[in-house]
Design a protein around this nucleic acid. Structure first.
Lengths: 220, 220
DNA sequence: ACAAGTGTCTACCGATTGGTAGGCGCGCTC
DNA sequence: GAGCGCGCCTACCAATCGGTAGACACTTGT
């Protein structure tokens, strides 16, 4: 009965969701840019437009908010997993481009995701390790499976260590997206004719990933 | 006279240097593991074995301590620069291994260096960008020069974007060393016959860097 | 012997932190 | 229309933060 009314009109629950969602969005932004310890509940509440006490009504503690933000980001990642499996349905180089493209797109869509994940890995390595095992290990399993398949086909370099390869690519993507405006812009001269630092960054990332994977250096 | 006595016994100045050095070492460790905002002056002082007020005698503010730690790490990096130029005196693949080996060694010697630099990039992107331009841009210039030289020789793949390539390799090294115990151990099964996660990590990193650089995939 | 540092200490400060208690208004259900 | 729960509020709390003031020991140059 309650469910029927709530799902039909969802008057109360929509407001609740709205506030919670707004808090999560602001918290993600601040946690990612200033860090967890560098962000006060006051800061978050102010940007949302409510009082600190109201914030603590939705999340019973700062720690719960942290977990909420992290879970939300990881759940968004999981939502994109079907699209990832579709990409994996291809073969050879197209499969490669699709798979890595989906990963890049996820972090490029909101770089704060990369910043948050990186910060969480630094702040709470142990917790993060277990969470990653749950959330990304299955996906890594799919990818490494295809790499090994490619090695049998002869398309993929037999020297590739599938798991270690994926880890390194992820490091490049996450670290690159998180600190893009720092390291890249500091070292990539903007006056270059090859496009913006971001474009050069992604293009070279794809090239490195491709040529170090395929035995014939992919599609040069 | 003062110099003679000081250099022979170094009673006062050694104590002074000792305290400062000790503070810098502890601060590096805590800033790297807990972050700047997650570390209190009390924490640092306690681990050094002095009082907070004594700490503030050596560094007039927490901000000055942050800068002191950062400058110290970057100066240690600069001390290794000559050794790096020696490595660059070789040619072909040996030059490549020596150069990237020196970089890996620097961060592997103390992973907190990687963690600190990563955190600083996240916390203070602007400041860090300028500092990197001063400290690592010259070194990057040397490396990209050799890459371009290799492209003329025909050893290096002409598709390589030298600056972007170096940025990506640095991302892999720094991010990998900083979060090694997190992402790696979560995804690299320890029961594998190829060695410890760290060994697999470094080996695959070198393979990716090598095969994506040289036209003949380096020395397979 | 004595004045001038030098390094560390205790004691304290105002500001900010995460979190709690309790009141107020609104819309809902009986 | 009385009760009730939800969402937000004001007001407050103890703890901790970075930083300061000033006393005390000890060494050093004259």
């Amino acid at each position: 009965m309650v469910d029927r009314v709530a799902s039909a009109l969802a008057p109360t629950s929509s407001v609740v969701t709205d506030a919670r969602t707004q808090i999560l969005a602001v918290a993600l932004r601040l946690f990612a840019t200033r860090g967890f310890d560098g962000t006060s509940l006051q800061d978050i509440a102010q940007l949302v437009g409510i009082r600190k006490a109201s914030l603590l009504y939705h999340f019973e503690s700062k720690e719960q908010l942290r977990l909420g933000v992290l879970d939300h980001v990881l759940s968004v990642w999981n939502e994109g997993l079907p699209r990832l499996l579709v990409a994996a349905a291809r073969t050879g180089a197209p499969r490669f481009s699709s798979l890595i493209g989906e990963v890049i797109r996820f972090f490029a869509e909101d770089r704060n995701r990369a910043r948050l994940l990186l910060r969480e890995s630094l702040d709470r390595g142990e917790d993060m390790r277990m969470r990653l095992q749950t959330f990304v290990a299955p996906w890594v399993g799919v990818v490494t499976e295809y790499i090994r398949e490619g090695q049998k086909n002869g398309d993929v370099d037999p020297h590739v260590d599938p798991e270690a390869y994926v880890v390194q690519i992820v490091h490049m993507v996450v670290s690159g997206m998180a600190t893009a405006s720092t390291l890249d812009h500091a070292l990539l001269p903007a006056t270059h004719s090859l496009g913006s630092p971001d474009e050069r960054h992604v293009r070279e990332l794809l090239r490195i990933a491709r040529t170090s994977l395929f035995r014939d250096r992919g599609t040069p």
